[in-house]
Design a protein around this nucleic acid. Structure first.
Lengths: 213, 213
DNA sequence: GAACGATTAAAACATATGTTTGAACAAAGG
DNA sequence: CCTTTGTTCAAACATATGTTTTAATCGTTC
């Protein structure tokens, strides 16, 4: 059933997975119709129910699939050899690249971002497998920069770093309307990463001195 | 039907507006059903079409209504008497209060935030009437703090400030899962505002020195 | 209190969409 | 060739939901 001799007849299941992630990321769970997914995957409407059971299970599968797709080089930012500042820069660079770069496996992050604002239930698994690990890395970097401060303070700094970057994703349509300066974010990932890094570095240090002395 | 004696003749329109904004903010445009709005407003299903035409016009009306509801004391933060630092603190405090405080007129900000991630078309008017004005105020503050730097730099700093705060709204469910530290955000608005202010202040100054010298 | 316009109510209508069905079809093995 | 098993397809089904319709109701005016 699940592991048959082979996908004998066709590769419909895989095509569905690929397309589904893309569409779900683009339009959100509710606005995505099975019919559109199937059309874009050259599959029959019944294919979803045959291969996955129902729409929600398709979403779950696409989400899970998107998790396995990420080539997680274990985040070189965890090489504790380099100075924390460089690791922070590397962290933001990777984060923004994943978030803003268009193209194929990109819907993984967009799916993730969407789940944040409109949780469908896949959230918990996602937090466990995706978010918390990165969060730990970031916290490590911040802790090294800030020194001995309460965990709550570390957490707020982490939120400040992530928040700056997520904003470019969530508020993209607004940013474009509010000022022409924000056009073509994709082309300035490096510049944005640099800004976020410098901004945050100073922020973290400023917060730290309040709690250390 | 539900509340017989009450339901004064002619108040339905207002009740619909009140409830609609709340529900739209809570569930988003798609997930909101006319039937639920009407039920919660003690109105008949046909009331929406009678008073507003259709669902989209109801949304537009609720949105517009939410804009007029805001008691816009013209943001004391624009009293250019006070030092920029205090005005930044006042700005973030107000912003976060509006964003996180529960209770009635709060759905105004949540509606706004939702329109950011799932634009329905009301976005343009919103940007013009709501976002850009605040954005100008913030930019003024930042410009005063940073001195003579390119507009693009000001814009990125503004995005950093807003992003930090919006994050607490968008990622609330995730933050709760990722660390217990983030429970009960509503109760710590002042603390968060203080954090964002200090963090941003340092960030802005750090960015500024790169471009001034 | 009768008449009239504005409002509300209950039911019907139309459509979109997730889901199911049963037949057709392809590949593999006997 | 026939059967079996997994897959695809077109059509039907069920339900949710936005919209419309038609009659009843309320408030006002004469």
């Amino acid at each position: 059933m699940d592991l048959p001799g082979k996908a004998i007849h066709g590769e419909t299941r895989k095509r569905l997975l690929d397309v589904a992630g893309e569409v779900f990321a683009e339009k959100g769970y509710d606005r995505t119709t099975i019919r559109e997914v199937c059309r874009r995957a050259n599959a029959n409407i019944a294919a979803v129910n045959y291969h996955f059971g129902d729409k929600r299970k398709l979403y779950a599968a696409a989400f899970d699939y998107s998790l396995t797709c990420v080539d997680e080089k274990p985040t070189p930012a965890s090489d504790t050899d380099e100075p924390a500042e460089d690791r922070l820069r590397e962290f933001t660079r990777r984060f923004l690249r994943r978030l803003l770069d268009p193209g194929r496996p990109s819907w993984h992050s967009r799916l993730l971002a969407r789940e944040m604002s409109e949780p469908t239930g896949a959230l918990e698994a996602m937090v466990r497998r995706e978010i918390r690990p990165r969060y730990e890395v970031l916290q490590g970097i911040i802790r090294e920069l800030a020194g001995e401060v309460p965990p709550r303070v570390i957490a707020k700094c982490a939120a400040s770093v992530i928040g700056q970057m997520m904003h470019y994703h969530f508020a993209r349509p607004v940013l474009k309307l509010v000022s022409p300066v924000y056009g073509d974010l994709e082309k300035h990932v490096e510049e944005l990463a640099d800004h976020v890094t410098r901004f945050s570095l100073a922020g973290i240090l400023a917060i730290a001195v309040r709690y250390r002395k």
